[in-house]
Design a binder for these strands. Structure first.
Lengths: 226, 226
DNA sequence: ACAATAACTCGTACATTGTACGATAAATAT
DNA sequence: ATATTTATCGTACAATGTACGAGTTATTGT
């Protein structure tokens, strides 16, 4: 009957003069977002529920909905929060455009890998300010490098596609590389059917960084103005 | 009280001698899978629920669970069903490896675009027989083309990454290209912040096929043995 | 022929989710 | 003081995946 929580501290009661709220500053969009990122990092995409999020914030579930319209918004905000890019100011070094592009794309990939849930969310939501900034930046780099306006969009999307594919794939694998091992084993059993990829142990290959850089190089080679 | 469904035909009753079950052949994995694909095509990934699926099959929800362990399995099966590849027998034409590779990859992409829900599922489940077949095939093509064993895995994954990134992105966009338009509009309002991608109307570009082919070409150029 | 067993179907029940709807309370404006 | 805005949150509900076990039908063993 009595308190359902064995009454530890019925959440959020504070009349006048008490300890400064144990450690709950008032709810805010920022607090929600950073906590959401923590939760996503810890529990993955399935692990983020409004209830858990509220718990971590020491708040009631429905309080979240004053700051946020739907759960989707939380994802959007968390995603964008993870994608900001601090780099040298936009328009200085006209020299090493290739290096600049590579740096920016690898940093982008690294940011997503640091939060494996983020990669698979991004394609659905290309709209956040931080990701637009990155696209703008890339656009400028290529433009300054001499890529014709007619080819600019194709160039950007090619790079986008490559980075996203690589990152989503790796992030999903990371989530469960025992799956990967299991698959390679199953694959061995079927080696008559898949002799080539069995022999090269495709599913166990792990030089992802190397492979990424190599393919990226090829793309940039092709895209750079002759 | 009486029949909850205004009693059209209380599901699954048939004693002796009746019309051959109106059109419900017995439940089976295959029937479940093809119906799941239909449902996914019609309603998208969120639209597939066990209840809806069972309804479409004229069966009770829990009947599905005799043929399938978890909902995840339905996704896996539907995904693989959509990815099979019928092409010229594996080992004939030693000439046009580039054309062969392009054909296979574009067909793969097209298959996924025909079922926009499929692309985003694939990275999580690289294991189905049909997708393994495709990887095997690609492997053989590249191998026959003279790609050294040391570079084979990197080559395959580069192509995989590119194809997946391109397809996931496009499939997500297709789902909601009004979002895209809205974003471009929002972008116009912010044209001081994102001048370059605003000017090139990046988010409205729609020569996806062209861009895809171009980038793919660059990758193959880079990957082909000198 | 009949009994036993396997193959299959499905209703009920439950825990978990997102969130609509007000009822509060606190801060601020009038 | 009173009214309004800002913020919090409990209750309630509908939708979901699926555990459990009771049914039914088909197959097999004798």
């Amino acid at each position: 009957m009595a308190a359902k929580n064995s009454g530890a501290r019925s959440k959020r009661t504070r009349r006048t003069s008490e300890r400064p709220p144990p450690q709950e500053p008032p709810l805010s969009r920022e607090r929600i977002v950073t906590t959401a990122v923590e939760l996503l990092d810890a529990q993955g995409i399935e692990g983020l529920t409004m209830r858990r999020l509220a718990d971590r914030l020491g708040a009631g579930v429905m309080s979240l909905y004053w700051h946020v319209d739907k759960k989707e918004d939380v994802f959007d905000l968390a995603l964008d929060a993870v994608l900001d890019y601090r780099a040298s100011p936009p328009g200085n070094e006209p020299q090493d455009w290739r290096g600049e592009a590579i740096h920016m794309l690898e940093d982008w990939r690294a940011s997503m890998l640091r939060h494996p849930w983020s990669a698979s969310l991004l394609p659905r939501r290309v709209l956040g300010p931080n990701i637009l900034s990155r696209l703008e930046r890339l656009s400028q780099i290529l433009s300054r490098a001499g890529v014709a306006d007619t080819n600019l969009n194709a160039a950007i999307w090619s790079l986008w596609n490559y980075v996203m594919g690589a990152t989503i794939t790796l992030a999903s694998f990371d989530v469960s590389d025992d799956d990967r091992a299991a698959a390679q084993q199953r694959l061995t059993r079927l080696s008559e059917r898949y002799p080539t990829i069995e022999r090269s142990r495709l599913l166990l290959d792990d030089d992802w960084n190397g492979a990424f850089r190599k393919g990226l190089g090829f793309l940039l080679d092709g895209l750079s103005p002759k």
